[in-house]
């Protein structure tokens, strides 16, 4: 029992990072109809940039902000140079484009930073706390806190700002964006920047726990994606929940079976969801009508 509790507690940590990445998928999907297979790379960029700035001797907060900014710039570039011009392509073409972006970003990161895992300093030391019998590292708390803050910020942005409401309106109806006087180009830009920031925060927070490397984006991205699908990619809270659930399942499976099989179990769950409820646990959109 206490063992299970420990696995659950650790699972919430990774789960909340998955949740962040899943929200990034969901955001881009809802705004632009694109499944962004490169979403995990934003987390990688966040983590590796944080490490890079720490190496330069930057203090924590500026390093963190700079790392997120790097990801935001990459997101903006992708939107401006690639995704916006290509927005009218067929779904399959768009999938291939984002797969290409994922591959290219991984390649560039490896060229810049090498392949070896690097240790990223935790935000506030290596301490840990005890939570009803389970051990939780302080960094894990930061992850939880960070995820909650980002989710809240995203919520407030979408609900409480003019820009955000325009974006939200456009999720339901693309024409509505124009009523808010939004230029589609800016629109795509804000969406991608938001998604990049969310992903980068997740990656930067996770890095001290797992170490970081140029290849981490692929696995993280796929996990986040699986989470998004499990929860329902057309619902932001659904996607977040899906990410959390996936983290829990993986952690428990890794604890009781083996970490290799844990990945397999994640994909098996995905498979099941796709077959039984393709719109996800909380998604509302019926898949096809005819």
């Amino acid at each position: 029992m206490s063992l299970l509790w420990q696995f659950v507690v650790s699972g919430v940590g990774t789960g909340s990072v998955y949740a962040l990445i899943a929200m990034g998928y969901s955001l881009i999907y809802k705004e632009t109809g694109i499944i962004n297979f490169a979403q995990g790379e934003f987390a990688m960029i966040g983590a590796m940039s944080l490490w890079m700035f720490q190496q330069q001797g930057w203090p924590l907060i500026p390093a963190l902000i700079a790392a997120v900014a790097v990801a935001a710039v990459v997101g903006a570039g992708i939107s401006r140079i690639v995704m916006h011009p290509a927005r009218h392509s067929a779904p399959l073409t768009l999938i291939f484009i984002t797969l290409g972006l994922d591959t290219a970003l991984r390649g560039i990161a490896t060229l810049l930073w090498g392949v070896n895992p690097v240790a990223v300093n935790p935000l506030s030391g290596n301490g840990s706390i005890h939570l009803i019998g389970a051990v939780l590292s302080v960094q894990n708390l930061w992850v939880l806190l960070g995820a909650a803050v980002v989710a809240l910020a995203l919520y407030l942005f979408l609900e409480r700002t003019y820009l955000g409401r325009g974006m939200e309106a456009a999720m339901d109806n693309p024409q509505a964006a124009q009523l808010f006087g939004m230029d589609p180009l800016k629109f795509s830009l804000y969406t991608w920047i938001s998604a990049a920031i969310i992903g980068a925060v997740g990656g930067a927070l996770l890095a001290p726990i797992t170490t970081a490397n140029a290849n981490m984006g692929l696995d993280l991205g796929l996990s986040g994606f699986v989470g998004a699908i499990i929860g329902g990619i057309d619902s932001l809270p659904g996607a977040a929940l899906g990410g959390l659930v996936l983290g829990l399942v993986q952690s428990v499976a890794a604890g009781y079976v083996s970490s290799t099989w844990a990945d397999g179990i994640a994909y098996a769950v995905l498979f099941l969801v796709l077959l039984v409820r393709p719109q996800g646990l909380m998604g509302s959109h019926a898949q096809h009508r005819v």
Binding site: P85, S89, L101, R106, G107, A214
Partner: peptide
Amino acid sequence: GGALELTVYGLILVVVMM
């Protein structure tokens, strides 16, 4: 070596598809 290959492969995929 591998990194350069990855980068160029990815870019080719993007450019060709665009």
